[in-house]
Every structure is written in C-alpha cells, then in structure tokens.
C-alpha cells in the first residue's frame, strides 16, 4: 500500500481513472473544463513552484495557442488536429522569443512584465488585429471542424477523450520533469539559489529559458484545446483581469506539486458552476479559501495533504517502513 502511494505513476493512473469515471456522475462539460483548466494551470504551477517565476500574464500564452488554432480553422483549413498543432507551434515560437527576454528579469519585474505582455496581447487581439480577430465578437468556427477518425474532434465527446489523453500525457511529462530528471532538479535549484547552480557549472539562463518554453507551450496547448472545445475565440480570453486565475488556482491546489493544478481547477470550476448558482459573488469563496489554505502552510491543498498522508502512511506502514525509520534515527544520532 505504502509503495503504491509512493509511486507517482500509480497515483497518475488512479487519479485519472477516477477523473474519467467522474464524467458519468458529473456533467461532461464540467469535467472537460476541469481538464483543460488544469492543463492551463500546470505550466503556471510548474513555473511558480519549481522555478520561482510568478506570472500574471498567462492568459497571453493561452490566447496565442487559442488564436493559432482559431485562425487555422477560420481561415485556412478544417482539420482539428492540424489546428491544434498550429496553436502549439505558434505558442512555441512566441515563447522561444519572449522567453529569451523575460527570463532575464527577476521576481516582481518578471511578474509585471508578463502582465504587460498580457495587456499588449489583449490590445492586439481586440483592436490592432480586429480585421482578423473580430475583436470582442470573436471568431466562430465550430461548423468548420471536420469529423476525424478514431477520436472525432467535431463532437464534445471526442474533444473530452482527446483532452483527457493530452492531460495524461502532460502529467506523465511533468512527473518525469519534476521527479526523474536532472532538468527538474536544476529548476528547483534555480528557485532555491541560482548562484550555487552556476558554481556547479550550469548555464542558469538556458535552464530558465527551457522551463519557460515548456511551461508556456503547455499553456498554449490548453488554449488550443479551449478553442476547439468552444469552437469560438474572442479577445476576452486574454483579458488581463483573468490573469490572477491560474496563479490563484496554482496556489490553491499547491504550486509545484504534481496534482495541485488538478485539485485547484476542480475546486475553482466547482465553485464557479455550483456556488455561483447560490451566490453571485462566488469569487469571494475562492478568495477566502485561498487565504485559509495559504495560512495553513503555504503549500496549497495537495502540498498540505501530501505531508499529512505520508505521515499517516508511515505511521500505519509495514515493518519495512519502521525499519527504515530506525535506520534514519541511527544516522541522525551520530
């Protein structure tokens, strides 16, 4: 039992099985939103928790992926897979360019520069490119999406399965990056003490750049999925007022944890869809919850629960666990 819960691959398998089964209990649209929002938040959570980059500009990267997909489907073609690829590639190119400049900044300057980038993007999509984006009226292309074999992305069911599989892939990727790669470890070291990493012979700039590119391209991928799901994109997707959402969800779930974005997204969409039917100011509940979670230890829900659960599992673990504790005790007494 202990070994099962200590293995992240098992956790991913269990959690995503539950997530898939939940679509038979909860509305499919709700689950789809949770999945896409959690992919969106994953990049942000990784940057905050593992690299130390807090960004209030994530809607910009989301919008780039969304508009890449939308432009393709509205103006050029009808294949949704190609459209997603276009969204990702556009995101990748923009992230490579912007990342090379933004990661030179530290802490609050990085945060605000991203916010400014978000504002610039909002202006571009709403005003400057209004001829192509149709500004706030947006681009409608649902009817232009061709049915596709195996997974039909012209239907919500197909988008759900595709987004679900993408999410599994994203989680496997981040599990590898966070827990099994030197790159993941160096990211954490950048957050702790980047100067020390330089002493060891690492090019910190490249590490931060790669982290930025990976995380924000995943955000663009989420944008492409949003675009495909709604069959519509408007400038509102990059509204600066929405910039707090991925940061708040990351903090709520647990920034830098593997499952924090999923838990945070589930709670956020849950409150938005359910609590908003009872009270109009549902954001108030998110705010209060965020304050409580932060005061409880700044680790988010998953971070706090992980500590509690591992203590519980160790306490009721088998003899192997006790033996391991004793060995550690001996070392400690030296």
């Amino acid at each position: 039992m202990k070994r099962l819960f200590n293995n992240n691959l098992s956790k991913i398998l269990i959690i995503f099985t539950i997530l898939y089964l939940l679509k038979y209990v909860l509305p499919q649209s709700f689950m789809l939103e949770v999945i896409i929002l959690s992919i969106y938040t994953m990049g942000c959570s990784f940057l905050i928790g593992r690299v130390g980059f807090v960004s209030f500009g994530q809607p910009a990267y989301l919008a780039i992926g969304a508009y890449g997909t939308a432009f393709y489907l509205y103006y050029f073609g009808t294949n949704p897979f190609v459209a997603i690829l276009v969204g990702i590639l556009l995101g990748l190119i923009i992230n490579i360019i912007t990342g090379a400049f933004f990661i030179r900044l530290n802490s609050s300057y990085y945060t605000l520069c991203n916010q400014a980038f978000c504002v610039v993007n909002f202006f571009i999509f709403q005003k400057a490119l209004v001829k192509y984006t149709h500004g706030d009226n947006g681009l409608w292309f649902l009817s232009r999406i061709d049915p596709t074999p195996v997974i039909d992305l012209s239907r919500t069911e197909g988008v759900f399965i595709f987004a679900f599989l993408v999410a599994v892939g994203v989680w496997l990727l981040f599990n590898y990056l966070m827990n099994h790669s030197v790159f993941g470890a160096t990211c954490l070291c950048v957050k702790c003490n980047e100067e020390k990493l330089r002493f060891l012979g690492y090019n910190v700039f490249n590490i931060k750049w790669l982290a930025f590119i990976i995380a924000n391209t995943i955000t663009s991928l989420a944008g492409a999925l949003y675009s495909l799901y709604f069959g519509f994109v408007s400038a509102g997707i990059t509204a600066p007022s929405k910039a707090i959402e991925p940061v708040a969800i990351s903090m709520l779930g647990g920034a830098g944890t593997l499952f924090g974005p999923l838990v945070g997204s589930f709670i956020f969409i849950g409150l938005k869809d359910i609590a908003s039917q009872v009270i109009s100011y549902w954001e108030l509940l998110v705010g209060l919850m965020l304050i409580i979670v932060m005061l409880a230890g700044e680790k988010g829900i998953v971070g706090s629960l992980e500590g509690f659960l591992s203590k519980l599992i160790n306490k009721h673990g088998n003899n192997e666990g006790l033996q391991a504790t004793n060995i550690e005790g001996e070392v400690g007494s030296e």
């Binding site: 030197v182 470890a185 954490l188 990493l197 060891l200 012979g201």
Partner: peptide, 13 residues
C-alpha cells in the same frame, strides 16, 4: 540545495 538529498546534490554536480 535544501530540497534535494545528498545523492541528488552529488548527481547535479
């Protein structure tokens, strides 16, 4: 690096 074990610290190097 406080979050990393001794092994991981050495692996980095």
């Amino acid at each position: 690096f406080l979050d990393l074990t001794v092994r991981e610290n050495l692996q980095l190097s």
